[in-house]
Amino acid sequence: MNLLIKAEYRKVFTTKLWWALLIPAAVLSMAFTWGGALLGTLGDMDREVGGVLPLAIPAFGQGINFASVFGLILGGTAVTGEIRHKTITTSYLTGSTRGAVLAAKLFVYSTIGAVYGVVCMLCATLGAVFGDNLPNAADWFTLAGAGVVAMIMWTLLGVGVGALVGNQVGTTVGLIVYVLIVEPIISAVLRGNELGEIPPYLLNTSGGSMVTDLSLDLFFENLPGSSRRNERAYEELREFLNMTHSPQWWVSALIFIAWSVAIGLAGWLVARRRDIT
């Protein structure tokens, strides 16, 4: 198993994709927090709310959600890239079992998801520093920690979907179509039928909420001014974002982790039986 893990790292680091996807992810993370930090320090806002607005926090949350798309795409290429270049044949021929080869892949890509997460969080922190609006450090690092977990899970999810679908274009397009079109429609239909408590359990909603919810919680905690007024604004904002039924951020996190692990496992089961012709 250790041998296969080493081989898998060599596969990743001997091609360019890993950094070609990491750069935009890191840049996005930094751009979001920097922009949020700058917005929060605009003079007018200061007077209105009586202090610096910690806008870097929700911006951070959104940045994580966007950046994790790159982790998802990288994960999606783990199996499909090998199928596309037919190196999967050699990989299976040099592994003790197919299950071991795929397990090594799931593990290695999860750790690379972690690397993506850490790099993106550092860049995001830098963005907040540049914008001169780094809020409470403990809160900030809680959010960063959630961001790393989210990034790992999105990457793992990508590996799982890629292993299930087996086709690189199909995987990438399928994931994007699902996230942008299919799931929003399902959610809208469910909410329209008084079933609003279901959408938080959906894949993308749970993955997005785990970070967004946390960032909003922390944002309102860090708001200057009266807490009563903030609470009302908090509720209104959640309603506006269709998050009335959202559970606690860590519940969303658990749901999303369950999704990723289940799909990763399903991919493992399917790909190890698929004929390689």
């Binding site: 041998l3 296969l4 080493k6 081989a7 060599r10 596969k11 001997t14 091609t15 360019k16 890239g81 270049h85 037919k86 190196t87 999967i88 044949t89 050699t90 990989s91 021929l93 040099t94 592994g95």
Partner: peptide, 27 residues
């Protein structure tokens, strides 16, 4: 057992040495 199944099973941007290093590690 070593097998040569199709001569197309390479990542085009990986060098020959790196290709072999990947599988040497696996074995």
């Amino acid at each position: 057992v070593g097998a040569v199944l199709e001569a197309q099973s390479f990542h085009p941007n990986r060098t020959a040495r790196n290709h072999l290093r990947v599988y040497a590690a696996a074995i």
